[in-house]
């Protein structure tokens, strides 16, 4: 069974996030996680590509993870405004 710590370790080593939040939402059955990742590496990448990067970082874990929800995959610039106001950052 994949632990929260394993997910954190893989994401930290591969994406070098400045903010990372992994939440175990399995409720004790299977392995389900919600993740928020803020990383420089997302710069200039579309959301789909960012999600692909997260999936790739967790390639090994994904074999055992039942559900992975990527709540946030943002660049540091996108992340900052939402910290203060807790509203959706609009970059368009």
């Amino acid at each position: 069974m994949v632990t929260k710590e394993q997910v954190e370790a893989s994401l930290t080593s591969k994406l070098k996030p400045i903010h990372l939040e992994v939440t175990d939402i399995s409720g004790g059955c299977g392995s389900s996680f919600e993740v928020e990742v803020v990383s420089e590496q997302f710069e200039g990448k579309r959301l789909l590509e960012r999600h692909r990067m997260v999936n790739a970082a967790l390639e090994e874990e994904m074999k055992e993870i039942h559900a992975l929800s990527i709540k946030k995959a943002q660049t540091p610039q996108q992340w900052k405004p939402s910290q203060d106001s807790a509203t959706q950052p609009k970059d368009a």
Partner: peptide
């Protein structure tokens, strides 16, 4: 790696979060 997967006009869009 996961489902659901959504395609629009032949283009892969992503999963439920996207």
């Amino acid at each position: 790696p996961t489902f659901p997967q959504i395609f629009i006009k032949g283009e892969f869009i992503g999963g439920s979060d996207i």
